[in-house]
Amino acid sequence: MRSVTLLGSKALGLTIDRLCFQLIEDHGDLSGSALVALQPRGVLLGRRLRDELTRILPGTRIPYGELDITFHRDDFRQRSVTAPSAPTDLQFSLDERRVVLIDDVLYTGRSIRAGLDALLQYGRPASVQLLVLIDRRFSRELPIQPDYIGRQVDSFDGQRVAVEWGTTRKDDRVLLMTSEP
């Protein structure tokens, strides 16, 4: 397995800061919006964004939820993992809110499709946008595109993007892994 660092800890920190300011530019103090991160890996990014936004906008409560999409996947009965990986925690209605769906890596778009399906069971949002840390371009199987992108990468099918959140922020990094032939 060969791996290339796409984002080191410093670049990752700057990218997250930039994403926060982009969100603030579009959503103001986020009171009429909601951040909804997908389980299991999107929530690690989602929590980080929530924490950074709270730091940048002291005193504001960022409406934040976590969504499990297991029961909405389109590959049920085609792969082995079936039980929910982590719980949904969404304590408010999404009616009329501007929702930002959050995941770490956008690849085929199928998880996001399932996420949209699950999301709409909590109400009718005013709008839904998509925020991803890594956009693997040219690999989409569904017509789904992100609105906020940390970094775009071009990659092959056999490659894998790993977002690693360390125990301290110094250890955070994003890797592009290629298996040796």
């Binding site: 909405h72 929910p84 949904t88 399906d117 709409l120």
Partner: peptide, 23 residues
Amino acid sequence: ELIFRTADGFKEVLSRPIKKVPS
């Protein structure tokens, strides 16, 4: 234990405004 873990997920589904999944 697997059944209970999965049931936890469905309990949450049953608390949603729309209590239905397409599985």
